[in-house]
Design a protein around this nucleic acid. Sequence first.
DNA 1: ATGAAAGCGCTAACAC
DNA 2: GTGTTAGCGCTTTCAT
Lengths: 333, 333
Amino acid sequence: MNKTIYDVAREAGVSMATVSRVLNGTAVVKEETKAKVQAAIEKLGYRPNAVARGLASKRTKSIGVILPDVSDLFHAEVLRGIEDIATMYQYHIILTNSDAREDREVDLVGTMWEKQVDGLIFISEKITPKIVKTFESAQLPVVLCATEDPEHRIPSVAIDNKQAGTDATRYFLNLGVDKIVFLGGPTSQPVTMERLAGYEKALADAGHEFNPAYVIHARDSHYQAGYDVSNEFLNSGLKADAVVATSDELVLGFLNAVRDRGGKAPDDVMLLSFENTRLTTIVRPELTTIAQPTYDLGAVSMRLLTKLLNDEAIEEYTVRLPHSILERTSTKR
Amino acid sequence: MNKTIYDVAREAGVSMATVSRVLNGTAVVKEETKAKVQAAIEKLGYRPNAVARGLASKRTKSIGVILPDVSDLFHAEVLRGIEDIATMYQYHIILTNSDAREDREVDLVGTMWEKQVDGLIFISEKITPKIVKTFESAQLPVVLCATEDPEHRIPSVAIDNKQAGTDATRYFLNLGVDKIVFLGGPTSQPVTMERLAGYEKALADAGHEFNPAYVIHARDSHYQAGYDVSNEFLNSGLKADAVVATSDELVLGFLNAVRDRGGKAPDDVMLLSFENTRLTTIVRPELTTIAQPTYDLGAVSMRLLTKLLNDEAIEEYTVRLPHSILERTSTKR
DNA sequence: ATGAAAGCGCTAACAC
DNA sequence: GTGTTAGCGCTTTCAT
């Protein structure tokens, strides 16, 4: 097996250049010879070797995706968005997990270069100067997804996290709720800090006092971390009327900590989180969330990357996707 | 930029073959020249072009993964297992979603061939003759993951689904429970049917009567489908003491349908499901499950594939990973 | 509209 | 232990 373009050329009685032309549509070929070539391709069951193609053309039609962890529901949904648009534009995805470790990330950008990907979609918790420098030296088109470079040197697609934090907090304020807990990931996580800034702003705007005891940080954004830190909080004897949490799993940690104490939501505490993964409608009470357009975050990132790759006109390099509040039972009394 | 192996050779004052040798360790090189080469690599910031390498060596160090949907939690966790082992063996993953559509799957195997992947990991709902034929004509080493070829022509890693179905059912039987609902995916799904066979066997072994009304099939394995079909069941007025469901989301659909009617679990109905994704401990009550070793399913598949690729000795081409029952509160009265 | 030929950057015989 | 030289299967000038 393993037919080559040369076999097709001979079978069709033309040169390999002509076969290449009908394959790629890079030049006009007479209908008649085109038909002969296609017949030969069909007959031999020929398929072009993408590796040879990549070497000769210097474009591999594959793009690298570096993200912290695919098994995280949020990332998995974003990835699906990336993949769908990639497929639409005939790109393939080379996927790697970084566990959000900077050294891994730097390393992975290098191996992505080795693989000669045409571009990169990068999802991380934090964009460090080292990473930015790595992007530059790799000379790869990069789009940050659900992540922003604080100095906006790299194209990105995300939501306005500070505004979202404000909106979430204001939502409770408008309900007349008083003691609002902010439950986030570690302070090293820019996303958490931006949303926290929004929370503080909403409080300040409303003339509310800011009480640092109501800001709690979990060690990561997963369920167990949320559960643990919520228990600590509740053990301290503080009373919360509502929670604004930066991830769906985190808020479920709080919910279950409350339940362990015989409490209920929304009766004893109202809950709002940020991701809008499918968890929000699977659990009871269904969770009110700031709806991040998860799938779109991936899809739009990939679309932006294709524009970069084709030198299409680009209006905005720092794309902010709209967010909204989806009210569900976790905040209905 | 874009240094080539030739630049390194000149910088180090050796031939490109020697550079290739220190890069790949394919032959003994004098310590001294090796050092010179490494210094040159360092100095130039050289990185080998994997595409050229792939073309010359006919091995790309990349493997294709075809699965129905990454945004499905189960698949995402399996994928993480695949990826970790792949990284360990220096392979990269090219990922594609098939939506479990046979035509897409056949097509994707073809494009994976074009990409010259060294091997394939295939996850699907069903292994059809057409797919098997496609594998054969592609001449690619394939490992089926969480899926089995009914005729065992293709190496696979899965659990013993019939046995698991029996174990799950017997668990309730031993608890003295009577009316056990089997809630599965569509009848076209072999996994569902195998587990159902196990359910029937357990009933038969115990001398229980099999009542077809207690077997319900959702249109897919997701939450909403489970919720909808559970509502239909409950509307019919039938009473269930326990549910054996083929996915975590499905059983949550049943749970919420029961809750909508003012019922509770495990008090009114005991719940058991099959995947053991992280959902099981996030929701309340925590779900008793047949613990499929999700991550391991991926990891072991990838390991098996590396064995295939390196002509290592293989004891078993049809690997059955052990399953177990994790008792949690959804079955504790 | 088509063919000839020169690479793309590397590996892998084959020499020495 | 190291260098020389063919390719790997394509794309892409440059002719014609």
